[in-house]
Every structure is written in C-alpha cells, then in structure tokens.
Nucleic acid binder design. Sequence first.
DNA 1: CTTTCAATTATGTATATACATATCGAAACG
DNA 2: CGTTTCGATATGTATATACATAATTGAAAG
Lengths: 252, 252
Amino acid sequence: MPDSMAETVEELAGGDASTSLYQRILNDIRDRIVSGEWEPGYRIPFEHELTEEYGCSRMTVNKALSQLAKAGLIERRRRSGSFVRRPQSQAAVLEIHDIRIEVEALGLPYRYELISQSKRRAGSSDRERLGPDVSGQLLALKCRHYAGARPFCTEDRLINLAAVPEAADEEFRETAPGPWLIGRVPWSAAEHVIRAAAADADIAADLNLAAGAPCLVIERRTWSAERPVTHVRFTYPANAHAVVARFTPSDS
Amino acid sequence: MPDSMAETVEELAGGDASTSLYQRILNDIRDRIVSGEWEPGYRIPFEHELTEEYGCSRMTVNKALSQLAKAGLIERRRRSGSFVRRPQSQAAVLEIHDIRIEVEALGLPYRYELISQSKRRAGSSDRERLGPDVSGQLLALKCRHYAGARPFCTEDRLINLAAVPEAADEEFRETAPGPWLIGRVPWSAAEHVIRAAAADADIAADLNLAAGAPCLVIERRTWSAERPVTHVRFTYPANAHAVVARFTPSDS
DNA sequence: CTTTCAATTATGTATATACATATCGAAACG
DNA sequence: CGTTTCGATATGTATATACATAATTGAAAG
C-alpha cells in the first residue's frame, strides 16, 4: 500500500507516523511554498497526479488542497489547476515580513546594511528570546533597512546555529538574514509580539530619532518542527509602519 | 432577542444561494458562538443530530465541524461531542479584545468609565473610520478602562446606528460598548491596525502620561454581513499592553 | 467495593462514486 | 473571419460506506 515515493516524502517531512495522510500532503505542499521551492505562480500538481504520487483517493488530496486554498496559500481555478499565490498583504506583514517588499510597496528604493555580526554561546538573555532549550552556539546580527535615504527600521536578530549551521559561514553583507532564512528553513510556527516603546539611545541613533521617541516594535520567534530557529526584533519609528490584519472568525 | 436575531442571521447567510451547505452549517454555528448564544463549554449538537437538522450526510456536517475545530472555535472529543472553546489568548486579543479579560488576566481589578457620548450624522472624518458607505446617524463614545487605580487604556468608538439601532437607547454607564455589541451583533469580519504613536494632549491627560509618551494604538473595524458596524480605537501606554499572535502557515 | 474488560458511542480518516460548474480549446457554422 | 457550440478537463460539493480510535459506560469478575 505505501509506495516508495510516499515513504520518501514521509522521511523528508520528519516521519511522524501519527499524522494523517491528508495532513502530510498539506504539510509537504505548504513546506515547499514557504521555503520558496514553489514560487508564486507555480502550478501545483493536479489532484489526479497527487493521487498517484501518494497512492490515495482524490478526496484525500482534495481535502489538503482545499484547506491550503482556504488558508490563502494557493488559488484554485477550475479546468486550470492550483497555483501558489503571491503573499497577501496581511499575510505579508505577519507571516513573511520581508522589509524589502514593505518598502517597495511604498514606492521607495530599498537598501539593506549590516551593522554588526558576532557568534557566541547562548546566554540566559538569549534563552529568554529563543526559548529555554537553546544551549549551543548562536549568531547575533544587527542590521538596518533603508527606505530611500532614511532609515526605515532596525533589525536585531539571533539565529540558532544548531538549527541552521550554514548560517555560520554566511556573510550577510548583501542579503538580509530574513530572506536568507526563508528558502533554507521552512518554518512551521511563528509567534509575534507587537508593542510600543520609547527609543533608547542606540535605537535613536540608528533611526535618526530623538531619544524617547515612540517606536513600534515587532518581535518574531520562529520554529521549524518544534525547534527554535530565530528571534528577531524590528524597531520602526512610530510614523513609519503599522500592522494590518484582517480576520473572520474561522476563515470566510 | 436571541431567537429573532438567529433567524435574521440565517436569512442573511442562507439567502445566498451560492454558498455551499457545509459552509452554511459552518457559518450558522460560528455565528452562534461569536454572538455568545452558545457560550464556552456549550455542547454543540452531535454530528448525527445536525445531519437530521440539515438533511444531509455526516461527511458534510463533519467537514464544517472539522474546520471550526481547526480554527480553534470548538474542541472535539471522541465519544463526548463538540464543545465551544474558551477564547484562546491570541484570539482574545485580535478577535474579541475584551479589556476586562485582559485586565483580570493581569490579576488586577477592572473598572470601566464612560467619558462622553453623543449622537450625530456621519461626517467625512467618520466615513474615513467606518467606511465610505456610511451615511446615517451614528453614536460616538469615549471611555476609559482601569486596571486597579491606574488608567489602562482609552477607547474612542463610533457605532453605525443603521446597523445597530438599539444602541441609541443604551446608556453605556455600566456596560462597556465592546461586550454590549458582542452578543447583539455577530461580526463576520474585522480589520485591525496596530501602530505606535505619541500621546497627544487629550490622551496624555486621560492616561496620566506626559505628552509625547509612546503609546500602542489598536484600531478595529467590524462588519456584520458586509455592513460596517463599529470602529474603535484603543490607546494604551507603551508599557501596558502588547499584541501577541501565533501563526502557522495554514493551521498546523 | 474495586478492578477489569467489553460494548457503545462520537469522532477521525479514507474510499469509491456521482454530478455540478467553470473554463479552455477546438471543431462547426454562418 | 468571427462567432457559436460542444466536448474535455479540473475543481467543488455531496453521498454512502467502511474501518480506526479514543473515551466512557456498565456489567462481570475478583
């Protein structure tokens, strides 16, 4: 009953035997989308193709694809197939949070700059940010993002090298760590904290503000299969950015 | 009137012949939950009962209930049935946003105070907040919420009286408008904007802050079946509140 | 009176099947 | 050459059925 392809997929996905088949199909496809392997516009295999690949009925495949469509990750068109959607506005802010896209949406030229980079063993304040279980080496980064000539926001990031060892050899001179991580580590969960704060001396200097000026702070923790991957804190001048989210209680 | 309200909702939702049956079942149940008719802990009819009520197969009912469970509105237990869940933390902030619950979660006594109340015809700045189509009478409210002796946040709200005529006769001395509206108007969509701002003179006075102090501002617009219901702006001192949201790209 | 165990029940997942619907593309027609 | 028609195709929804699984009930055994 389980053919070799299905077994391979299961191994790649982490081999959790407890998850149902439709859930595994959903996760497989979702991972390929959020990792960037299947870019926006990519045509997902037809239901009857996935049916063959996983050796199951169309209803099972349909359940997975319908949920991905409802979640907004793909768009389904009769007679044409299913396609990876461009990240939607509200999703872009809370899920992807790519600053380049934010800035370019404002019609301004984007520029990225690495301020500092250091490798160290996780301390207690790091564990507060990444999670209590993190013990090994980690990478600490500070960067700045520009919209035109003006600083748009600062980024203060920790990367768990146990989860992403390749990050140790990366320079991050040209590529910002956010886009670099997406495409390498498919994230399975993310937690956001959004708050206001007064700019301290460092932030004020980085953003060209008066000390004490109001700022919006967005912190994000990301996990890949239960393992902490990264913690990042973006700080924006109050007038630069707002978080927009649209909801309906359970889809729409 | 909970019964006539339910009928109204059903007409609005069921009048659309294009919605599928499972979607209508889902909407019916969801509306009863968000309107408060079915409180947390309430046991939803068994699948086989809904099967009879809607005259359809168990698979159709199951599809609706499974999605509600995935969305976190209900919890399903084998052999026992399906139950309305208590609003979860992240949902509480972004979906319900009941300040009493927020304050009491901090272990502080909650108090609510109405500052001002006025009825007027919608002007252009009101339309900017509620939406361009709003033309009739509306109710403008300003309130303050306390955590212990200290002001916790201010609330500045518009209510579209065309959508909620009963609000015109309500005093809002004891009950805050948020909890009052829930339980009367099931909302079908909500949009949040979260940003940071400096306290202006009014806000500073209301919250006992220095002018220019950083604040977190959460604005929410709510619709019921495409019709704007209310716009509310909560302003918190920067240290009082943060928005927390957990995501997985398409459920988990 | 407690423990054990089997029956019952509701949900969870999957299958095969059926028909509806939107849409693309090609063939038929004026 | 343009338009219409029609068949093929992929998705959308619903059905009846089947078996698995978790949890609870209640009866039998100790």
